[in-house]
Design a protein around this nucleic acid. Structure first.
Lengths: 330, 330
DNA sequence: ACAAGAAATGAATACGTATACATTTTTGAT
DNA sequence: ATCAAAAATGTATACGTATTCATTTCTTGT
């Protein structure tokens, strides 16, 4: 590999001068500048970012620990995060984390000595959180948060759950079920709490079988749907824990020959880009501002990295209903 | 930052021994091993991958230069690539490249001294290709290829274009339009060639206005659609250059109050995961094996990196029709 | 033409690791 | 107990860069 030393020899200068040409060309005389640049081009020299990181003690790299892309929410956020980081001259190392490989993913990030970590995959009482704070690496969570988090970006999940149920109730539904993810995930937990509060406020009867907490695999969701649809008293409406859940449920409905919304109303939460597609048109709850959570988070993170800014970041975006066509008046 | 030297001091051994504990523990006596491991844990030591890269001259990192995620094809491939790489203990640095930032993206990858590059965004006669080969970094393209490429993975694009047109013809359509991307992209070019061949073989009349080559922005596609729909003799079927094009066109149809397939048949190419969704059900052409192109490519790339394997990789997956519900008999 | 100050360059070093080689310690057969 | 071989450990160096400090070269005002 051709190094700055090789360039220096070729140009008849010292290695330090080559370094200066790259990092502070205003310090070097025009004549030598040209000589060095010529040598760089002749030798096809490309500086080694790893060596640079070593001496400067920063890598210009951010680790992204995202949920899987089959969840369209993470498609939107990943896209926003990677693009904004690129604009700001940060590189993103992405991992799509499942629970099994979680701690491995963290280790990788730590070893790379990334300048910051942006992550979604954290549980409300995750023990990894301690490790993360002790690392002294700036990090921020989006969508989910840990109970002790001081840096996070989310939507108002409680309100989202509340509005979700409220919408169904206002449409005249009395049999409303919930299907959402595990309650050790802050997002699902708060949404579910909001949902239950609305149900209670409007004095709707909510049988135990209508409260379904499941993991996020396609199969588990399908099984939950199947169970729900084979109850004696089956629900006329389902509030899904997220748009991703809603999409799965809509698919399940189709395979069970049920039309949405004619036979069954379904509402999501997140208002992902895909939900606006004309062939889907999912009714959902989403951020009023329409700002992408990933974008908000990466902006803040880069600010934290650059300015050693230590004040908290606790952003909770207000939400509203996006009334589209997967729910209907009873 | 705590380094292996600090650990060495704490454990009362040399730095070399610490290094051995991490990389070849079988060489170190049990007693000292335990001392060192204790010191590592006490100090919360995490090795610096950059320093390691410097001396070992490999980074364990692969650069992914992907197209944007609003194209669902790249959702599927990115997911497969990142996950497989993680399994094989490679890290992925991802960039979603647009044409403006292309050469910048390459530079970034080069500077990081990545072990390999997996990319989609390359033009048929892209001058960057020369640079890439001169770099002596293993690389592979998926989906698209350069005219001189010796390492690529694609579907049989020509055949895909052919089958796409053939399907419409067999459904009884006589007015069949093409809307696809730029012809300096191998993928679009070959698909278009296949399309034209089928049209010719079946002796269909193809007016100039039915051949639309546009860039891949939502707006340009919408404009193309609008033009097409306001022709005196408007087409009854559109062959889209990709599933992504098809999704856009379906959206455009909806906003123009045209139903698919009642008023207009639309077929895509790629058979992306999303196209199978019950609410979309896009008729399309895709790989028979169903193998993900990204997965095929990253497999090959990692093999190339590990085994210094220099023989060519030229994979062209055969295709077939996936007859779903966005086309209908005339 | 000269000195003093500024500008440009070079020499030396540090970053954190892996590894070749040198040295010490341990083992085991006699 | 001795010694050779094997095992374990330590020392020194290299990787490619940025940067501090020392040195040289250039300006400029007299």
């Amino acid at each position: 590999m051709v190094s700055s030393k090789d360039v220096a020899k070729q140009a008849g200068v010292s290695q330090a001068t080559v370094s200066r040409v790259l990092n502070s060309p205003e310090l070097v005389k025009k004549h030598t500048l040209e000589k060095v640049i010529k040598a760089i081009n002749d030798l096809n020299y490309i500086p080694n970012a790893n060596a640079r990181s070593l001496v400067q003690n920063k890598t210009g790299t951010i680790a992204l620990l995202s949920g899987p892309l089959h969840n369209p929410f993470f498609v939107d956020t990943t896209s926003a995060i990677v693009n904004y980081a690129s604009e700001m001259d940060y590189r993103i190392q992405v991992q799509f984390v499942n629970d099994k490989k979680l701690s491995e993913a963290y280790t990788t990030a730590f070893e790379q000595k990334v300048d910051g970590i942006i992550l979604s995959c954290i549980l409300n009482d995750d023990p990894i959180f301690e490790k993360l704070t002790r690392m002294e690496i700036p990090f921020i969570t989006y969508n989910r948060k840990h109970q002790n988090n001081e840096y996070f970006v989310e939507i108002d999940n409680y309100e989202a759950g509340y509005l979700s149920a409220k919408h169904m109730i206002e449409q005249g539904h009395k049999q409303i079920a919930w299907i959402g993810g595990p309650l050790n995930v802050s997002t699902f937990n708060n949404r579910f709490l909001g949902f239950k509060q609305a149900i209670q406020d409007f004095q709707i009867y909510l049988p135990e079988e209508y409260k379904i907490i499941t993991d996020t695999t396609k199969q588990s969701i399908s099984e939950s749907f199947y169970k729900l649809m084979h109850l004696q008293q089956r629900p006329t409406a389902i509030c899904a824990g997220s748009d991703s859940f809603a999409f799965n449920l809509i698919d399940d409905a189709a395979s069970n020959n049920l039309s949405v919304p004619e036979d069954l109303s379904i509402i999501g939460i997140d208002n992902v880009n895909l939900s606006q597609h004309s062939m889907i048109n999912l009714t959902t709850i989403g951020s009023i501002s329409g700002k992408n959570l990933g974008h908000l988070a990466i902006e803040k993170l880069i600010d934290m990295i650059k300015n050693k800014n230590n004040s908290c970041v606790k952003i909770t975006e207000p939400v509203r209903l996006f009334d589209r066509s997967t729910t209907r008046n009873l």
